[in-house]
Design a protein around this nucleic acid. Structure first.
Lengths: 215, 215
DNA sequence: TAGATTGTTAATCGATTAACAATC
DNA sequence: TAGATTGTTAATCGATTAACAATC
C-alpha cells in the first residue's frame, strides 16, 4: 500500500485544508482537494476512507473534522527532537528553518567537525562531532538529519545508527539503506535538478531528435 | 512507465558506477548494483535493456560503457544555466552547492526582494526581483529553483512561467502544478521529515497501540 | 423531486519480480 | 564441461481510477 506515499499525501491534505480553512471555508468536496493537489477525487475519498475520515453525501467533508483526524494520526503529542549532523550551508539552513516549529519539530543541536562552525552557546548549539554519541544517548535523540559532505557520509551514518538514531533524513549523495530498526529518507537535490533539466530538454526538443526509450 | 522514477534510477546508477570505477573496478554484475541501491537485479537488467545498455553473459557489464551510455542519455552537451529565486538560507545554500558544477549545472544568478541580500557584483550575482523577467528573457534561462517564503510562492511561480521558465524545482510548501509546457518538481522538506518521524514512531510503538490502517 | 456527492467495488494500469532459456 | 549471468517473458503485485449504488 506504500505507506510512505500515503502519509505524504495525508500531509499534503493537511496543508491544503489548513489553507482552505484560513480562507474561511468550513466544508470541502473531494473534488476541491483533488484539483489543488492534481490527483483524482477517487483517490482522495479512498484515502479518507482508509484513515477513517467520513463525509456526508451532498455535504462533503468537514474541514475541521479532517484536520483533527489527521492530527490524531500524524500529529505528535510532544515536540519531536531532531539533531542536524553537518553544519555547512544546508545544515545551517535546516537548523533555522522556521516551518519545523509549527509542525512540532524541534531542532535541538547541530554537530560539525569544523571548530569554526561550532558554537555551544548559541540558541541552537553547534557542537563538535566528538560529543555526538554522548549527546544522542543522554538526550535520547532518535531522529537525525545528515548534511555532511559525501566523503564522510557513510562513516557518520554508521555512528548515528550505533548511537541509537532510528530515523535519518539524508541529504548526502549516498543512497543509504536502513536496516530493520532504522528508517532512512534520501533526498538527492542534485538528482532532482538534473532530472528536471532532462525532462525540460526532452519536452522542448523536436520529436525526431528526442531520445527514444524502447519499452 | 514513470519516466521520472526511471531517470532518477539512471542517475543513481551513474553515481554508484562512478564510485565503483574510482575503486578500480572495470566490470560489474547487475547484482552488485542492485545490492548497493537496494533494488532487484531484474530491475537493473530491465532498465539497462530499456536504455540500450547491454552486457555479456558471464562477464557482466562494462562500467565505462554504461557510464558513456548514461552520459549520452542524460548528460548535457553544454552547461545548463539555472537561476535561484529567493536568496534566503536555502537559496544561498543551493547557490553555492559545489556538486552542481560537476553535473554540468551552472547557477548563474540569484534573485531576492530584500536589498540586504542583493549583491550584483558577487561571483554569482544576487539581483533585485525587479530584474527577474528581463534577465530570464535576455539570458534565455529555462530552469529556476524556487526558494521563496510560502506567502510569495504562487506569485513568483506565476512570474517565472510567464517570463519563459520551463522547469521549476520548488522548495516551497505549495505543491505547484506545471501545465503542458512547464515541468515542476516539488520538494517538501518539512513533509519528508514529518513522514520520517511518523514512520519511526510507528515502528517503535507496541503493535497494540499502533495506528491501524484499514485496507 | 432532481441533482450532487460519498463510499466502495470491480476494472485497469503499470511497475516490479520471478523464472528460465540462451550463452559465455 | 559446469557454473554463472544476461536478457526477456510471463506472473505478480499493488496502486489508481472508473463507475455506480446509496443517499442526502
Amino acid at each position: 500500500m506504500n505507506e510512505r506515499e500515503k502519509i505524504l499525501r495525508l500531509l499534503a491534505y493537511r496543508t491544503v485544508l489548513q489553507r482552505f480553512r484560513s480562507m474561511g471555508f468550513i466544508r470541502v468536496f473531494s473534488d476541491n482537494i483533488a484539483e489543488v493537489l492534481d490527483i483524482s477525487s477517487s483517490l482522495v475519498r479512498k484515502d479518507f476512507s482508509a484513515f477513517g475520515i467520513s463525509g456526508t453525501q451532498k455535504g462533503g467533508y468537514h474541514i475541521e473534522d479532517i484536520l483533527t483526524r489527521i492530527q490524531g494520526i500524524i500529529g505528535f503529542s510532544e515536540p519531536q527532537r531532531v539533531i542536524i549532523v553537518g553544519a555547512g550551508r544546508i545544515g545551517q539552513a535546516l537548523m533555522h528553518y522556521s516551518g519545523f516549529r509549527s509542525s512540532g519539530i524541534e531542532i535541538i543541536a547541530g554537530f560539525d567537525i569544523d571548530s569554526a562552525r561550532q558554537n555551544p552557546a548559541a540558541e541552537i548549539p553547534v557542537l563538535p562531532m566528538e560529543l555526538l554519541e554522548d549527546f544522542i544517548r543522554e538526550q535520547k535523540v532518535r531522529i537525525a538529519v545528515l548534511a555532511v559532505p559525501e566523503s564522510s557520509a557513510l562513516a557518520c551514518f554508521d555512528r548515528l545508527v550505533r548511537a541509537g538514531i532510528r530515523g535519518v533524513l539524508n541529504f548526502t549523495p549516498h543512497k543509504l539503506k536502513g536496516d530493520a530498526g532504522t528508517v532512512v529518507s534520501n533526498i538527492n537535490i542534485e538528482h532532482e535538478l538534473t532530472n528536471l533539466i532532462y525532462l525540460v530538454n526532452q519536452q522542448w526538443q523536436v520529436p525526431s531528435e528526442r531520445h527514444t526509450i524502447i519499452s
